[in-house]
Computed example of a mutant assay.
Amino acid sequence: MKTIQYYFSPKSPWTYLGHERLIGLARQHGALIEPKPADLARIFPLSGGLPLNKRPPQRQAYRLTELKRWSHYLDLPLNVQPRFFPVDETDAAKMIASVIKAGDSDGALKLSGAVLRAVWAEERDIADTATLIQIANDCGLDGAALHAGREAGAGLYEQYTNEAIELQVFGAPWYVYRGESFWGQDRLEFLERALAAD
């Protein structure tokens, strides 16, 4: 079975821009996606990366330009400066990991997409308990139970973060197929070529 390991941050705009396209690619090529939410706050310092607010002004400005460009190109709604960003993604990531732990990768991908849309298209606060519960409910999950039991996913979230560090991941989204890494939603075309070659 073709398997794509998918390391991501549930608050990353680049992950948002690539999420549904990745799912479509996997479906088209009969591939399985293994979603792996990872903590970029731990990963960035190890790779020389900087949090957004510590990057030089010219880099911050160009990031906004690129986000607008990609949003327009993909015809995906995206507020480049959302009301609730930066935001603590920890609870959202643990909830996603809990769904994965329960054996529901499709549910985890659906929840991940909904969380990403909440930040970048819907002006919702994914650090807010009621918001997270509602998002999960809308995905057909038991939001209250999932939020209450989110620590069940904490170990997996840490495991995925450690895996990412071991793989020398330094950004999100990050796709791994047959041991080859692809960084960024703008590398999905190369991932597709690799899938097609098989």
Rank of each mutant, 00 (worst) to 15 (best):
E34K: 11
R42S: 05
A61M: 06
L52Q: 13
P57T: 06
A41Y: 15
G30F: 07
Y73R: 00
Q60T: 07
A61C: 00
A31Q: 06
R69L: 06
H72P: 03
Y62P: 08
A61R: 11
P57M: 12
S71M: 02
R69F: 06
G49W: 02
P35I: 08
G30H: 04
L74R: 01
Q60Y: 00
R59E: 15
G49C: 05
L64A: 11
K68D: 12
L52C: 03
R42T: 12
L52N: 12
H29Y: 14
P56V: 05
L52I: 13
K54A: 08
L67F: 01
R69N: 13
R69I: 10
N53T: 04
P37H: 03
F44M: 03
A61G: 08
L74V: 06
R59V: 08
H29A: 14
S71K: 01
P57I: 03
E66V: 15
I33L: 11
P35R: 08
S47T: 13
K36I: 02
N53S: 02
Y73N: 00
L32Q: 15
N53M: 04
A31N: 06
P51Y: 04
R55S: 06
P37Y: 00
I33G: 10
P57Y: 07
L50R: 08
K36V: 06
Q58P: 06
D39N: 12
K36A: 14
R69T: 14
H72G: 13
P57H: 09
P37D: 01
H72R: 15
P35L: 10
P51G: 05
L40W: 11
Y62A: 09
D39I: 14
K54I: 01
D39L: 12
G49I: 02
A38F: 00
S47C: 04
L74E: 10
A61K: 12
G49N: 11
L64H: 08
R42K: 14
E34A: 13
T65G: 10
L74C: 04
L50I: 00
E66F: 04
P35Q: 06
F44W: 15
Q60L: 05
G49K: 07
Y62M: 13
R69K: 10
F44R: 00
P35D: 12
L74W: 01
S71N: 01
P56A: 12
Y62I: 09
Q28Y: 10
R59I: 09
P51E: 01
L46T: 10
P51K: 07
A31M: 10
P35Y: 09
R63N: 11
K68R: 11
P35K: 15
